[in-house]
Design a protein around this nucleic acid. Structure first.
Length: 600
RNA sequence: GGGCGCGUAGCCUAGCCUGGAUAGGGCACCGGGUUCCUAACCCGGCGGUCGAGGGUUCAAAUCCCUCCGCGCCCGCCA
């Protein structure tokens, strides 16, 4: 084997902070050597506070190092500051208490940042391709009716995560796993395979008078669903009919209308998501794993698994006591007494297919699927599979009266309804301030404001936090909201338009961008690549929402603090700064799936 | 009963993974700002025992334990 001298290939310059951090690490390393304190570069790097404290851009708390080498932290800080070799990138190194505070050269940071923004344009904040192929499965709602906002939380989290990981250089494939074979899908086929006149009266009554001509297929076809559900509870004969349907679907003999109906409803659902800029690379049908034999292979592997047990009635299960699952679920059935498979077994087949294609697999799941997720992992281990999915678990959206959004309980807020209301309010807001716009522009802006508000409202909160849905909050266009970001973007666009410099190039003199508000703004601009990397790695998509708000917020402060077009010598440089903000904020909006608006 | 998650000002929320210098925002409320590049904005003020208690540590919103409250799950459903 040939060992080449090729060290790490130089990573492309995508992070404006990188050269400054490297300079600081090198300077600290020299100081630590002088004090005979051994500390690796990687170790030191983790201790640096790059977001910066109040007294500099980058800080090093020395406590840990001091403790490990039995020194006084404050003295160590002084010593490290004193030993720091002069470096034009880092003109100020000061000890304060136990901290060493580094201030980078603002002109150089400005140069590093603006040049990178302009050079990379729409790819500023994006990493070079890593070559890693990953799958993000999200949404995967049963095609039984329209989306309510609780389910859409899954879609928004998943879509944003997919965008973040793409930006981080991963080759992302998004998948929607469609359950076209369970009881729920069968219920829909069951009712629609009958002429309306033959529908059970309670179901017909639930639908009569509710329907509107030309309504979306998911709404139309899904409307009887709650009534079917209630009806089946009371009627054993109907239950048997549905059970027969489930069996024939599993046997590959679905009713004639089945696939068509499922696709029709799914189409309606996907149309709604498309308004939120959410789409999928692949739609994966659960039935496909049954038909290609992979489910049977999974069942076979499970039957031969170490802890497989056969029940007296012929069903098969895994005795999972010892596999770390909660006590009551140690007995995991994977094959029914009649030989048919269960959702869990089919999901294993699906995951094996994913593992075969992707290096990493992420599933976005509601908290009610948490046990399923753990069981899935346990059974993957049981059949000797070493790959595991990563789960992003989010909490439900509840209604103020308490309880989850439920289709049956009538507490669900439909995405379509929310969109309708949001567009109407956005339209009113636009009309309030703009009389000069065409009807078409008003509608376009209202749609973007509405969808931007909804996406931002959901993504801003950490997935693991419960959310109570309130109309006033979801439709807020002020403060920490999507429209605030869009407004800031439109404002930056407006400045460039009025300055007649919409196209660039944007020459600047970094020394002229010395106002404190300008310096702060540049520091935030420089932080974008880090924010993207963090969101992608941690799956904390809310960090992107926070970043975009911080950037817009600081831009507005800058905007009010200093003139741009009406300034003197600084004009050109400030225009460049505005252009950089517009580019970066636009890139952030893209990752959030919030429309950029040139005007609003 | 068990498992998992959540608990940060009147309300919403960031920070928690990887402990570090006075806990960031937003809404609401009070007071200001538009002959000037978009006021969906900005400035100032008000408001915090980070659920409670204990532990680890030089240092805890952050890690560990206990308790309290809320949510979800515990099916030959998906």
């Amino acid at each position: 084997m040939t060992v080449t001298s090729q060290a790490n290939p130089p990573s492309p310059p995508v992070d404006p902070w990188a050269p400054f951090v490297d300079a600081i690490l090198a300077g600290l390393d020299a100081g630590l050597r002088g004090l005979s304190i051994p500390l690796g570069d990687a170790e030191l790097r983790t201790q640096l506070d790059v977001e910066g404290g109040a007294d500099g851009d980058i800080a090093l708390p020395t406590h840990r190092i001091a403790h490990a080498s039995r020194r006084d932290p404050a003295e160590l800080a002084l010593a490290l500051a004193a030993a720091f070799p002069a470096n034009p990138l880092v003109p100020s190194v000061r000890a304060k208490g136990a901290y060493v505070n580094f201030t980078v050269d603002p002109g150089r940071l400005t140069d590093a940042t603006l040049s990178l923004v302009f050079q990379r344009g729409g790819r500023y904040g994006h990493a070079e391709p890593t070559g890693e192929s990953v799958c993000v499965e999200h949404t995967s709602a049963n095609p039984t009716g329209p989306f309510h906002i609780g389910r859409v939380r899954n879609s928004i989290i998943g879509d944003t995560l997919a965008r973040a990981r793409r930006a981080a250089g991963q080759a992302v494939t998004t998948q929607y796993y469609v359950d076209d074979m369970g009881r729920q899908a069968a219920m829909i086929s069951w009712i629609w395979s009958k002429p309306r006149a033959e529908w059970p009266v309670p179901i017909r009554r639930a639908v009569d008078g509710e329907e509107i001509d030309g309504e979306k297929p998911d709404l139309h076809r899904g409307r009887p669903y709650p009534a079917i559900s209630a009806y089946l509870k009371e009627h054993e004969d109907a239950r048997a009919e549905v059970a027969n349907l489930v069996r024939s679907i599993e046997e590959g003999q679905p009713p004639a209308n089945h696939r068509e109906l499922t696709e029709e409803i799914l189409k309606g659902m996907l149309d709604s998501l498309a308004r939120l800029k959410i789409g999928f690379d692949e739609i994966v049908w659960e039935s496909s794993f049954l038909h290609d034999g992979s489910v049977e292979r999974v069942l076979d592997r499970l039957r031969h698994a170490p802890h497989a047990v056969r029940e007296s009635n012929g069903a098969w299960a895994i005795d999972a006591s010892g596999l770390g699952l909660p006590k009551e679920s140690t007995h995991v059935v994977f094959q029914r007494a009649d030989g048919t498979s269960l959702y869990l077994s089919r999901d294993i087949a699906y995951h094996l297919a994913k593992f075969a294609r992707f290096q990493s697999v992420t599933d976005v799941l509601g908290q009610d699927h948490q046990l399923h997720a753990r069981t899935l992992s346990a059974l993957l281990a049981e059949i000797g599979e070493t790959s595991r999915p990563e789960f992003v678990i989010y909490q439900d959206i509840t209604v103020p009266e308490g309880g989850r959004m439920s289709t049956r309980g009538g507490s669900a807020v439909w995405l379509d309804h929310l969109l309708e209301e949001a567009v109407e309010r956005a339209r009113r807001e636009v009309l309030l301030r703009r009389e000069d716009l065409s009807q078409g522009d008003i509608e376009r802006i209202a749609e973007s404001v509405a969808t931007g508000a909804i996406r931002y409202h959901i993504v801003r909160v950490a997935p693991e936090k419960p959310v109570v849905f309130r109309w006033e909050e979801a439709l807020s266009f002020e403060g920490r909201s999507g429209p605030f970001l869009q407004y800031s973007y439109a404002r930056a666009s407006s400045v460039l338009r009025r300055g007649e410099v919409a196209q660039g190039p944007y020459p600047y003199n970094a020394d002229l961008l010395s106002d404190p508000e300008e310096r702060s703004l540049i520091r935030i601009l420089a932080g974008f690549p880090r924010a993207v990397t963090y969101a992608a790695r941690s799956a904390h998509v809310q960090a992107l929402a926070g970043y975009a708000h911080d950037l817009a917020d600081q831009f507005n402060r800058f905007y009010h603090a200093v003139p741009v077009l009406k300034s003197g010598a600084e004009r050109e440089s400030r225009i460049a700064l505005v252009a950089a903000v517009r580019q970066t904020l636009g890139n952030a909006l893209d990752l959030l799936g919030v429309d950029r608006l040139e005007t609003m």
